[in-house]
Design a protein around this nucleic acid. Structure first.
Lengths: 161, 161
DNA sequence: GCGCCTATCGCAACAGGTTGCATCTGCAGC
DNA sequence: GCTGCAGATGCAACCTGTTGCGATAGGCGC
């Protein structure tokens, strides 16, 4: 996974946001280890969100000796680097989002278990964020937001209690 | 929902919303057991919210033989009865709310770990709920809502990353 | 008061995630 | 290339919560 040597086939950071991670770590006095390389490799192929458990599984596929605590600790580090974000699904389980994919909130229907992404510029998100800022000066962390409830379809079918 | 036996020392439902639970259970073909009685006793003394683990602890104080799975299963049943609601704190842990305390959402500051209740008629909640309903026909479950982010105080101190 | 049906219980194992600690190793400095 | 220090790892134990299953016991009908 390295274009190396000749600068010509070296893609800009935009399409390879992962390439700079080793240096970003070292710049903070942190280290680039085989275990971290594997996790970053896995993350670079993720599209959308993954649960922590799934990441552990995928890492284990590349390296059977993968230890969960190492994965979770590395995820913390990568979040501090701003490379990923975590949030909690409606059932409370951790979910990780890979950047620079657009930040978004989630809508979760407790009846059909459906889940939708809500871009930051969605009216629902915008109004909520504005209202919290205006009324209380509170800055909502959109990427961490999961709204659960009942979707339009499930309301009309009347399946909900 | 019955005044029963000796009406004199029988408090009205309003102050004893728990008194009707045995009958509500039986009406659904469910049972009133010692373990459930203990949990309901604990819940009746709760004010605001409690985590699952805390409920297990408090039950164990009344009955050292309390088993966690029994408590969690009973909590599910009580939620179906509409007596309590659960939500997830910012860290994903379960939190139970006792009714008929007013429904409310939560605001959680990830910097100072502060937490505030947001009544259903708070402008932030109202606008968000209205926006979701208007734009998507989605009915947000307010009691399950936790907004995390950074509070006004922490923004001014600039303690956040 | 008795018996039966089935809801509930207790228990053990599991799942996702976290933490403390002894050991190891990246990597900066020489 | 070698050394040393602090950051990371591996491991084991723990926490919160869930699930499957055989045993137990509410409570309804008689």
């Amino acid at each position: 996974m390295r274009a190396a040597g000749s600068p010509t086939d070296w893609e800009p950071d935009l399409s390879r946001p992962w390439a700079g991670i080793p240096d970003q770590l070292r710049a903070k006095g942190l280290r680039w280890t085989p275990q971290r390389r594997i996790l970053v490799e896995v993350l670079s192929e993720v599209d959308g969100h993954v649960t922590g458990a799934e990441l552990v599984d995928r890492c284990r596929a590349l390296d059977p000796d993968t230890i969960p605590s190492t994965v979770y600790r590395t995820l913390d580090v990568l979040e501090e680097l701003g490379v990923i974000r975590h949030s909690h699904a409606a059932d409370g389980r951790e979910e990780f989002h890979v950047l620079p994919a657009a930040e978004h909130a989630h809508l979760y229907c407790r009846v059909c278990s459906g889940s939708w992404e809500l871009p930051t510029d969605d009216p629902v998100v915008v109004t909520a964020v504005d209202a919290a800022r205006g009324a209380r000066g509170f800055e909502i962390d959109v990427a961490h937001l999961t709204l659960s409830g009942v979707c339009a379809a499930c309301q009309t079918t009347g399946d909900h209690a």
